[in-house]
Amino acid sequence: MAEIKEKICDYLFNVSDSSALNLAKNIGLTKARDINAVLIDMERQGDVYRQGTTPPIWHLTDK
């Protein structure tokens, strides 16, 4: 899980924002549900936040 978090942070640092599906595909996974639990956990920790569009767009925080 730590490896996936690191990949998410690296990708969002370079791209600035992404949907869960696009993010999953760009870090080597196939479906948004493969990454949603990790994104929600990271959101609780304050590492990422989502804009409430459908589907949500994920961003890194300034943390």
Rank of each mutant, 00 (worst) to 15 (best):
D10H: 13
V38F: 00
K63G: 05
P56E: 09
D41F: 00
Y49I: 13
C9Y: 14
N36K: 11
Q51Y: 12
T54F: 06
L23C: 05
A20P: 02
D47E: 15
L60K: 04
L21Y: 11
D41Y: 00
V48K: 02
R33E: 15
K25Q: 12
T53S: 10
D34L: 05
L12F: 02
I4V: 08
K31R: 13
Q45I: 04
P56Q: 04
C9A: 11
R33Y: 14
S16Q: 11
L21S: 13
L60P: 03
D62G: 10
I40C: 10
F13A: 15
G46V: 03
I40L: 14
R50A: 09
S16W: 04
K25F: 00
A32N: 09
M42H: 01
L12E: 11
T54E: 14
Q45M: 08
K25H: 12
E3V: 05
A2F: 05
V48Y: 01
L29Y: 11
I40V: 12
D47M: 14
T54R: 10
Q51H: 11
A2Q: 13
K7Q: 00
R44D: 10
E43K: 01
R33Q: 14
G28W: 00
I4Q: 07
I8H: 01
I4R: 06
Y11W: 07
A20Y: 00
E3M: 03
V15F: 13
D41A: 08
P56G: 07
L39S: 09
P55I: 03
D17G: 15
T54I: 06
Y49S: 14
R33G: 15
R33I: 15
Y11V: 07
G28I: 00
G52P: 05
M42E: 09
K5D: 07
V48H: 03
D41G: 07
K5S: 05
E43F: 01
S18R: 02
K7I: 01
A2S: 12
E3H: 08
N22A: 08
K7S: 05
A2L: 11
W58C: 06
D10Q: 13
V15M: 10
E3N: 10
E6P: 01
T53A: 12
L39P: 06
K63H: 07
T30Q: 12
N22W: 03
I27L: 13
G46A: 01
N36C: 06
D34Q: 08
E6Q: 12
I35E: 00
V38S: 08
G28N: 05
N14A: 12
T54V: 10
T30K: 11
K25E: 11
E3P: 06
A32M: 14
D62T: 11
C9E: 13
M42I: 00
G46E: 02
G46H: 00
N14G: 09
K7D: 04
S18Q: 05
Q45G: 01
V15T: 06
L12M: 01
I4Y: 06
E6C: 02
K63D: 10
F13K: 15
D62Q: 13
I8K: 03
G52S: 06
N14S: 13
E43H: 01
A24M: 06
G46P: 01
T61A: 11
L29V: 11
Q51F: 02
K31S: 15
I4C: 00
G28Q: 03
W58D: 05
P56A: 10
L21C: 11
L12R: 07
A37N: 09
A24Y: 06
I8M: 06
I35W: 00
G28Y: 00
C9V: 15
K63F: 09
N14R: 15
E6Y: 01
D10C: 03
K31M: 09
D10V: 01
P55R: 02
M42W: 01
R50D: 01
T54D: 15
I40G: 09
V38E: 11
T54L: 05
F13E: 15
V15E: 12
P55D: 13
V15I: 10
L21K: 13
S18P: 01
D47Q: 14
D47S: 11
A24S: 06
P56L: 02
T61M: 10
A37E: 12
G46N: 01
G52M: 01
N22R: 02
L23P: 08
N14E: 14
I4A: 07
G28R: 01
L29M: 14
I35P: 09
S18T: 06
G28S: 05
A37C: 06
E6M: 09
Q51S: 15
K5H: 02
K7W: 05
V48E: 09
L60M: 08
F13V: 12
D34G: 03
K5E: 02
A2N: 13
S18F: 01
I8C: 00
M1V: 13
P56Y: 02
A20Q: 05
I40H: 09
V38N: 10
K7C: 00
S19P: 10
I4F: 02
S18K: 03
Y49K: 14
G52L: 01
V48M: 01
R44H: 08
D62S: 12
K63M: 03
L21G: 13
D62W: 05
N26I: 09
Q45P: 00
G52A: 07
A37W: 05
L23M: 07
N26Q: 13
G52F: 00
D41V: 00
N14W: 06
N26F: 07
